[in-house]
Amino acid sequence: MRKLKNSELDRLNIDEFKSVEKTPLIIVLDNIRSLNNIGSVFRTSDAFLVEKIYLCGITATPPHNDIRKTALGSTKTVDWEYAEHTLDVVNKLKSENVKVISIEQVERAIMLNDFQPKISQKYALVFGNEVKGVTQDIVNASDLVIEIPQFGTKHSLNISVSCGVVVWDLFSKMQKKEKVSF
């Protein structure tokens, strides 16, 4: 096997990315401290055609050198918006009939592998602070909470890893359903 060159990957350019149909997913970052995590979320969002990212509270915004290092240009492709209060964003999205899902460990959480997204539904995925997670008021306002099953000694994953796992899982489930419906 030979590694492919970037020129052989047939990726979208910025204009094509902006005009292509997006995956019905929105990311909400609730007070993320690490600029590298923010950049990684942008990069994952670009890879899976996420509709938009909301950067809330203390979450830094582009342009910033440490975001740029991990985002690798995806801050130019993925739409984003800053909001001071995460709860305002959650309430706005819910009023637009977007299902809000916090990614957290709570009582009665749905395990990610058990969650089946509806193809006609748009979802907002809330990821929380590296230390405190998603705040309780946001958990309370969410339509549901999904937990990533974990089996080792640690009780959490890095926020950028969590985002990659959840977005890939939902993206792949949505793609399978689309393919079946043809």
Rank of each mutant, 00 (worst) to 15 (best):
K122W: 08
L55E: 00
A109L: 04
F127T: 10
S120V: 07
L112D: 01
I110T: 15
F127A: 06
G152V: 14
D10W: 00
E104F: 06
S120K: 15
C56Q: 11
N158D: 14
L29H: 05
G133N: 04
E84Y: 13
I148W: 02
L55S: 05
L49M: 11
M111C: 01
D143P: 12
K154Y: 13
L144Q: 03
E147P: 00
T61D: 05
Y54H: 08
T59E: 10
K94C: 09
G57S: 14
E107T: 11
Y82G: 03
E84L: 03
L12A: 01
R108V: 00
L12C: 06
M111K: 14
G73D: 10
T86M: 02
R2N: 13
I119Y: 13
T86F: 06
I138Q: 00
Y82Q: 05
T23A: 12
S120C: 02
E51I: 04
I58D: 11
I146R: 00
K92G: 02
D30R: 03
I138R: 04
N37W: 10
I32Q: 07
V28T: 11
I159D: 00
K18Y: 05
R43Q: 00
T61A: 13
N6E: 08
K3W: 12
V89P: 03
D15P: 01
L125S: 13
Q105C: 08
N129I: 12
S162F: 01
L72I: 05
F48G: 02
A83N: 15
H155T: 14
I32E: 01
N129L: 08
I110N: 09
L170K: 04
T75K: 06
K3R: 04
M174A: 00
D46W: 01
K52S: 07
D30Q: 10
K122F: 12
V78D: 10
Q136K: 15
Y82T: 02
G133P: 00
K118P: 05
L4V: 13
G152P: 11
A124E: 10
E104I: 01
V161A: 11
E147T: 09
R108K: 15
L72E: 10
T23Y: 08
L157K: 02
A83V: 06
V180S: 09
A124Y: 11
I110C: 13
K173I: 02
A124S: 12
E84I: 09
I138A: 01
E178T: 09
N31D: 15
N158K: 01
N129E: 03
G73L: 10
V78Q: 04
Y82D: 12
L144T: 03
D10F: 12
A109Y: 13
D30F: 09
W80Y: 15
E81T: 06
A83M: 00
A141G: 04
L9R: 15
S181D: 10
L9N: 10
R108A: 09
V28C: 11
A47N: 03
F171N: 11
V166K: 08
S142C: 14
D169E: 15
Y82C: 06
